[in-house]
């Protein structure tokens, strides 16, 4: 049985990298984002510090997405509606599976975290059921670069935004170990 004491919250937000919502790109010791703002975001994470003793005690973990949220900045940010319909891909963790690519039949290292439809001029919060977005990853190095990449569902190309109005986004996860 998994104890709730081994259950940690993990939040990735653009404002940890920069609070300037109009910036096309930003980079510092926390991470970076670029391509008209929020299409590609990299976070530098110390997994050992994040997970504490859980990181030393266990080898395999579950990453679960609970919520995605974004605030209104004014104006419309997507260049077209199809830029609002996206796959959010995650890479950087040592995924056990869930990175299978239909075209090649092989694994890619990139996990489709969720399908996301965001409003073009309003704020929004999407709550996910407890097992809607879950994956396994194994312990790797203590320091990882976690990358979130937004691509369009319709053609797999990067989403395109008007950078100065695209809101900062917040991704809320939890992590628990597999015994």
């Amino acid at each position: 049985m998994i104890s709730d004491s081994y259950h940690i919250s993990f939040v990735l937000k653009h404002s940890d990298i920069s609070t300037n919502t109009a910036a096309i790109s930003a980079s510092n010791e926390t991470g970076s984002y670029w391509t008209a703002g929020k299409q590609y975001t990299s976070y530098r994470i110390n997994m050992k510090a994040l997970c504490g003793e859980m990181w030393d005690k266990y080898d395999t973990f579950v990453l679960r997405l609970n919520q995605v949220s974004y605030g209104e900045q004014g104006g419309t940010w997507a260049l077209s509606n199809r830029d609002l319909l996206m796959i959010v891909r995650m890479s950087g963790l040592n995924f056990v599976n869930s990175t299978y690519d239909i075209k090649s039949g092989n694994n890619t290292g990139r996990y489709n975290l969720c399908l996301l439809n965001i409003a073009n001029s309003n704020s929004g919060t999407i709550n996910y059921g407890s097992n809607i977005s879950v994956c396994n990853f194994k312990k790797s190095s203590d320091y990882v670069d976690i990358v979130l990449e937004c691509i369009r569902c319709s053609d797999g190309l990067p989403v395109q935004y008007n950078a100065n109005v695209m809101p900062h986004m917040v991704y809320s996860f939890d992590i628990y170990p597999i015994e």
Partner: peptide, 18 residues
């Protein structure tokens, strides 16, 4: 909200774009 915690799991995405 189901509080059950999944252990082993894999994700599969099927897209007609592929």
């Amino acid at each position: 909200r189901n509080t059950q915690k999944i252990k082993d799991v894999a994700t599969l995405s099927l897209n007609t774009r592929d």
